[in-house]
Amino acid sequence: MKIAILGTGAGARQHAARLSALGHQVVIGTRDPEATLARTEPDMMGTAPFAAFHATHPGLTLASFAEAAEAGELVINGIDGANAVAALAALPATALAGKVLIDYAVPYVYQQPGDAPNPWPTPWGEMPRLDPVDTDSLAEQIQRALPDTKVVKTFVTQEQETVVNPAEFGGGDHTMFLAGDHDEAKAAARELLNAYGWTDIIDLGPLAAARGLEMYAHFHTALGLALGGRFGVKIVR
């Protein structure tokens, strides 16, 4: 299958490498391919420049967001949450119409006023707030912006390196979640998760449940800080 991954960050690279190893044809989308390849400094998360990753994965194609989305039979959104809606809405109408879009972005707001109330200090600085939150979700905003696209929220409750390789914890016996309004999108996400190695997948229902998945990000961070590293989550029922 030809799969488009929109975004070039650390998470997108995990999916690109794993999907390529599984035999899929992967196209990675970015705002400006030339600028992305020319960048020599790490990004805001400390991730090495994309060119270094691309050099070790020469089979991956880098293209513009529009070119990648047009080419993909299935599309994965790894654009940062603050810019995802605008970037996706700016694509040509034909790029995503009728397609499944798997969204794993978290709507973090990294630029906060210096006098923001009740800051949450972390080893890397103040914890970003979420926007939207409570009464809406990024996934729902994307669905409203792209009414002809089948959006499903998943992958968001784990670091992406664990998403693509669940076996590193408990032999893969932990839980992944998904939410969406389209059965076709959920089936596509489930098939991809199965290929990654997930066996315990819980369907949370309509896309509105993405609110809970996105808000879980703060609890996941708290757990990671308490445990001192990555981990898996198992729902016992």
Rank of each mutant, 00 (worst) to 15 (best):
D200C: 05
N118E: 03
G224H: 03
P117W: 02
K186S: 05
T157F: 02
V100P: 12
I5M: 00
A217D: 04
L193R: 01
H57R: 06
G232Y: 06
Q111L: 05
L193F: 12
Q112P: 01
L223E: 06
L193H: 05
G232L: 11
D181F: 01
G78C: 14
A226E: 14
V100M: 06
T61S: 12
E67T: 12
V151P: 00
A17R: 14
A210D: 00
A66M: 11
L225Q: 09
I201T: 05
A187H: 02
P119Q: 12
A63D: 15
G171T: 14
A51C: 09
D203N: 01
D32A: 12
A16Q: 04
D200K: 14
H54G: 08
L207R: 09
R237N: 13
D136L: 05
T36E: 08
P113S: 06
G171A: 09
N77T: 11
L96W: 03
V156W: 02
P33L: 05
R13E: 14
E184C: 01
T40M: 05
N118K: 04
P147H: 06
Q112D: 12
T61R: 07
N118R: 08
T199P: 04
A195K: 14
D115K: 04
Q160G: 01
G72M: 07
T154Y: 01
Q141S: 02
D183C: 01
T30E: 03
H24E: 09
A208Q: 13
S64N: 04
L207W: 10
L96Q: 07
F53P: 13
A116K: 02
A145T: 03
L88P: 06
V106Q: 07
N194G: 13
T221H: 13
A71D: 13
A16R: 06
R190V: 07
G46D: 08
P132D: 12
L223N: 15
L88D: 01
P49I: 01
P128C: 12
Q143S: 09
L19N: 11
A86I: 00
G114C: 00
L130R: 03
T157S: 15
G114M: 07
E161R: 12
N165P: 10
N83P: 03
N165T: 12
I202D: 14
D183I: 02
S20I: 00
H220I: 01
M1E: 13
P166H: 13
M176Q: 10
A90C: 04
L207K: 06
P58M: 10
D103T: 02
Y110A: 10
K99E: 05
L96M: 09
P119C: 03
A63N: 10
D80Q: 07
